[in-house]
């Protein structure tokens, strides 16, 4: 149908032209608005000194460093909380998901209650509550609990010995005049965020795991048990490989939302990417640039994850076929 084809092409060309016109108009209008109002724009601010401090940072950061480095430190902080949270939520979620399939009624109900309670309350609210609990219950820094030699827990967070420091190989936390100094500190903001993200996401992971295992036909288990496999063997050799195929794609999504949800740290004062970008936005007034940067970084993270999970799925598919 050549006529149809030409029509399709024409329609698409019109759509493309319309879209380009709209985009051009939006960009041009914004640029004109900004020019007319005398607003500076551009990404030059990234190389200028940030001027503000970051309370805790994986990367060494000083207020004289560039804004770009501040954002990098923010991104590192995002990953610093997201990666452990992914690990914890996956482990805990798997346990809870298995618990929901347990023959034990109490365990089943307990796990179901956990999922119901955490899934149905906004994460932001949970984070605020965890932060309140952490800062309210722990003793002040001057009266820090000493859990082990050089391990302190207080409102200033959990301080543990770490490599490096001013003099020598190992940096030991010490009681200072005001608080604990030295070593590596996990601040209450970090602890609350880690706890909140892990527990919330675990509820979703549990559902994913339960659904994945429930989707494996019953006959598979029955056959395996009839063949004389133990329950553990049945689970490891029969159920798990089949269930994983249904679990991994939604699980990747959960991990991705966890990383995105880490941006809620802005409410409890943990300096991750969005929080640092927000501060930069304030200091420089470059709203468009800072928001674009946040979105671009997250998009790249998402695309990377999607690519990684597709690769895993392919590999897993091969592996499952072989076994």
């Amino acid at each position: 149908m050549p006529a149809q084809r030409w029509r399709n092409l024409l329609v698409q060309a019109l759509i493309a032209a319309g879209l380009l016109a709209l985009l051009w108009w939006l960009l041009d209008a914004t640029a004109a608005n900004m020019r007319e109002r005398g607003i500076r724009s551009g990404f030059d601010f990234l190389l200028e000194p940030a001027g503000f401090g970051i309370g805790e940072s994986l990367l060494p950061f000083d207020s004289g460093d560039s804004a770009l480095w501040a954002l990098a430190a923010g991104l590192a902080n995002t990953l610093r909380v997201a990666l452990p949270a992914i690990l914890i939520s996956t482990l805990l979620g798997t346990l809870v998901g298995l618990g929901r399939l347990s023959p034990n009624l109490l365990l089943r109900k307990l796990c179901a209650a956990y999922v119901e309670a955490l899934r149905n309350v906004p994460l932001l609210l949970q984070l605020l509550a965890w932060y309140f609990i952490v800062t309210d219950l722990l003793p002040a820094a001057s009266k820090a609990l000493q859990l082990a030699p050089h391990v302190f827990l207080s409102k200033s967070g959990l301080s543990v010995p770490w490599l490096g420091g001013d003099g020598g190989l190992i940096d030991l936390p010490q009681r200072g005049a005001m608080n604990i100094s030295g070593g590596a500190a996990m601040t209450p903001e970090y602890l609350a965020l880690l706890l909140g993200l892990s527990l919330y996401t675990a509820a979703f992971v549990a559902e994913t795991v339960r659904a994945g295992i429930a989707a494996v036909p019953r006959g598979q288990s029955e056959a395996a048990l009839a063949l004389g496999l133990t329950r553990l063997q049945n689970f490891r050799l029969v159920l798990l490989p089949q269930a994983l195929r249904g679990i991994i794609p939604p699980l990747t999504n959960q991990h991705l939302s966890l990383t995105k949800n880490a941006s809620l740290a802005v409410a409890i004062g943990y300096p991750e990417l969005v929080s640092v970008a927000n501060t930069t936005l304030n200091q420089t007034g470059r709203a468009a640039e800072c928001i674009t940067l946040i979105m671009a970084v997250y998009l790249i993270l998402s695309l990377l994850t999607a690519w990684l999970s597709a690769w895993l799925e392919r590999r897993n598919g091969r592996w499952a076929d072989h076994s």
Binding site: G53, I54, G55, E56, N278
Partner: peptide, 16 residues
């Protein structure tokens, strides 16, 4: 050297 703890909202910073 000091450690700033930055909050988005006035209420949150006061509470902390």
């Amino acid at each position: 050297k000091v450690k700033p703890v930055v909050f988005e909202k006035f209420e949150a910073s006061i509470k902390a």
